[in-house]
Amino acid sequence: MALNLAQHEQRALPKPGQLSGWFTTPAILLGLLFTLGPIVVITVFSFMSQPANGSGVDLIFSTKGYEQFLFQEDFYGNRGFDGRYLSAFWLSFVQAFFTTFASIAIAFPVAIWMATKTERTQNVLLMLVTIPFWTNLLVRTYAWIILLSEDGTVNTVLGWFGIEPQVLLYNSYATLISLIFSFLPFAILPMYSSLAGFDFRLAEAAYDLGARKLDVIRKILWPAVSGGVLSAIALCFVPAFGSYLQPVLLGGGKVLMVGNLIADQYGQARNWPFGAALSVIILALTLLGAWALLTWAKRSSTKVSLAV
């Protein structure tokens, strides 16, 4: 189950049991209507104006959705730069960055560990890493409420050592740890799969020839795993950047990330054009990121795949 970011290099030979090209129509129609269609519409909406009072858009051209992102009137009616929404983007970036960084840092030794096991063990370990991947994200986030509550598991354990209950929940650290928990398998799986075919005797030989440990990691292992790392960045960073459940459930209403900011515009704040504009900005950043990854991959001729 791999989806190549870089499209397959050569045309496949005519395959058995092939159907006429028209059979792709229903799927393409679905994609046009319910994937591309919505993205086109939201882009259009981001340039429309907000109705006097409420949800929806008036079909009158306006760039207010984008202006709002950077400029606001203060209480005295002076228009000026306002960095509050940028700081929500910054917080999302920081959270996504640490999520991705931590996930990859943890996944690296784990991937080596898995790849150096016998094939049978590898399959079992692969399964063990895949199960959390397919477990409901909502309940995996909920688990951290149980762990971090004031009368939760962690504080209970601390209590055994005579440590007073700590406030662990409802802050950006709780959000971050659950993000790492959520996306760690997204890092382990592609990094493992790029190491699964690696011949570890290479590393062994390097040792025998007197290479230092750091050199072995840097010059032999890292090149082998870097394709997986690129996939891991794509798979961890994007969803962490746009995450909604973790900041809402574990942030206690105090952690404002882009995901909940956007959801709020279609909820409580009832400002569709602004929500649409924020979405377009996120989409543009995602595309930019994907393009940068692909360019990097091409230049270093690394094969990137969104292995699931």
Partner: peptide, 20 residues
């Protein structure tokens, strides 16, 4: 598809969603 979109958006000054 783009034709459909154009049609839908042609009525400028209309609105989508919301009460109006």
């Amino acid at each position: 598809l783009s034709f459909c979109m154009a049609l839908a958006l042609a009525g400028c000054g209309g609105s989508v969603g919301g009460e109006a």
